[in-house]
Design a binder for these strands. Sequence first.
DNA 1: ACCTGAACACCGTTCAAGT
DNA 2: ACCTGAACACCGTTCAAGT
Lengths: 207, 207
Amino acid sequence: MTRSALTRDEVLDTAAALVREHGPAALTMRRLAAELGTAVTSIYWHVGNRESLLDALVARTVADLGTIRPRGATPAERIVSVARALRRALRERPHLVAMVHERGLTERMFLPAQRALVHEAHAAGLRGSRAAALVHAVQFQVVGHVLVERNRERAPAQPPAETDLWATEPTGLPAPDPELARALAAPVDTEAVFLVAVRALVAGLLP
Amino acid sequence: MTRSALTRDEVLDTAAALVREHGPAALTMRRLAAELGTAVTSIYWHVGNRESLLDALVARTVADLGTIRPRGATPAERIVSVARALRRALRERPHLVAMVHERGLTERMFLPAQRALVHEAHAAGLRGSRAAALVHAVQFQVVGHVLVERNRERAPAQPPAETDLWATEPTGLPAPDPELARALAAPVDTEAVFLVAVRALVAGLLP
DNA sequence: ACCTGAACACCGTTCAAGT
DNA sequence: ACCTGAACACCGTTCAAGT
């Protein structure tokens, strides 16, 4: 039994599935060929080479992040809702987002959300460069936060643990209050940090 | 003429130089061996394997980021100065910082700066979980910003350019003012975005 | 137009053998 | 204790040859 004709879309689908299920390292040309049931070299006819294949996958991911719909009564709430929606969308595609990041296209991916932010900044009464500043600040904030967050999740157990570091004081600094020490030693609630930061940023930049 | 005995430090030095000058992709065991003038397999005796070698390089980078000295009259100024100093330190080691990030140790690298931030938050009158919130928010902000910034610098020319996207309006959204459109189309002054965001964040979280 | 296998120049790693 | 070359199982890519 011979397989039906290979198509570029089929190659991309299978490659995306491979990345989603086994991570980017599993996406080798030989493994992809095995998965497709074709010779390795057939893939080259359809997608050029590995580099172009990754480019195409990344372009797909960017396209997948559809329009962001702001929710809430006030402009501040609506801006925060855009930030939260974007964070969630990014977190649902960890491997692919990492690939987008590696290829320097993180900002391109952010464009639909940027449109929504422009709209809200305008509605809030911000004009010109002050509006642009808000848009860029939120953009950097959200993307940066997601990158840091992903980083934390992959982090190995890190000796010395933060707990130890804050239990023994370095010379020259006054001991922080016990509650602060406890708060710093506990695992970080990244969602809470995200909300606190976005709200403070928006409050600081809206008129 | 035979070379002097190989040491672990010599391996790490040469590996670091390779990464600094030619990027992480240039760090292969075979090339490293050629650079050192030894057999490939000798390296394994000193550093175990490639993974451990990268771990050691990353640990070095983390150690290199020494103590951060806050400057300025008010707590807000001093916190902002810590953020700026950290951003500069990270930007001076782009390849190695990327490796730290890939290995999930970005936060570990941030620890000296975190101590300084705790000190300043305390001096500003923040206590307990509110102080911890400020520290974490600034930490995520700075690291995230640097990651996004690095990403921008590597970004290829991205058709469609932002200029085109903001020139033609999508249906349903009111046209933003011309100055805003110009500000969004122009290349982003990332340093300015950084300062605006950090200042707004700190202002929003200090008492 | 599409697919193939053979071949090339690379990888990281293991291991038995040397000194 | 330290170093070596040979060998293994992988890579991505090219290319002449098939249909």
